[in-house]
């Protein structure tokens, strides 16, 4: 008995991209929670990066301004990082986001059971179905994280500018900000992939005979 050749990656990418494009509004809703979570993450970190660079400049005026803004600075402070409360909030936001993605993707699998069953009847292997869902989630994750990181960074920059004024330009931490943004994108993609894992496995294990089922 012969076996099927593997589906070329280019073709899988095409199918996954088409599926997102045609269901654009649906994909947008799925991605929105990710955009918001990543935006929150990168906003908080951008704000901290800028405050930290002001603190490290040892400019007395800047440090006064930081204390006025509410940063807890004393002679033992080495650097400004996230406060426990911020860390807690960020973790919560990311958790809520993953749960949201799992929920949306499970819905997508349920909605598409006939489509998945049909594909299997036409010769799609379990791993082809798995790959298609992971690719879709990867693309949504990348697009959503990029948008989120961009929005969050802009918001962080604007808030810092309105709080500290032109002081931030003197010590503008380009490298740290880029690092923060790329870290946020990476985390966003990872969350999207974690969120799709269980739904995609369920889709892959679906029996082709479900395509025959009558009810909608």
């Amino acid at each position: 008995m012969e076996r099927l050749p593997p589906l070329p990656l280019k073709k899988s990418l095409e199918i996954a991209f088409q599926s997102i494009r045609v269901r654009f509004f649906r994909s947008l809703v799925t991605t929105t929670s990710l955009v918001l979570a990543v935006a929150f993450l990168s906003y908080t970190q951008t704000w901290n990066d800028l405050a930290n660079s002001l603190f490290l400049s040892h400019n007395q005026a800047a440090i006064q301004k930081l204390i006025q803004t509410g940063f807890d600075i004393n002679e033992n402070t080495q650097a400004i990082g996230e406060s426990p409360k911020q860390q807690w909030l960020m973790t919560l936001a990311l958790l809520v986001c993953v749960v949201g993605i799992i929920n949306a993707q499970l819905m997508a699998v349920t909605e598409r059971f006939r489509e998945i069953g049909t594909m299997k009847c036409l010769g799609a292997l379990d791993r082809v179905v798995l790959l298609l869902f992971v690719l879709e989630a990867g693309m949504q994750g990348l697009a959503g994280s990029l948008a989120g990181a961009f929005l969050g960074s802009i918001a962080g920059l604007l808030q810092s500018f309105f709080t500290f004024g032109s002081l931030i330009w003197s010590t503008f931490p380009v490298v740290e900000l880029l690092q923060t943004a790329s870290q946020a994108v990476a985390i966003g993609c990872l969350l999207s992939l974690i969120g799709v894992l269980y739904p995609a496995l369920q889709a892959a294990r679906m029996q082709p005979v479900v395509a025959m089922r009558m009810e909608q």
Binding site: M1, R3, L4, K120, L122, G123
Partner: peptide, 8 residues
């Protein structure tokens, strides 16, 4: 794999 081939 063989089943997939058969169906395809």
């Amino acid at each position: 794999y063989e089943l997939a081939w058969l169906r395809c």
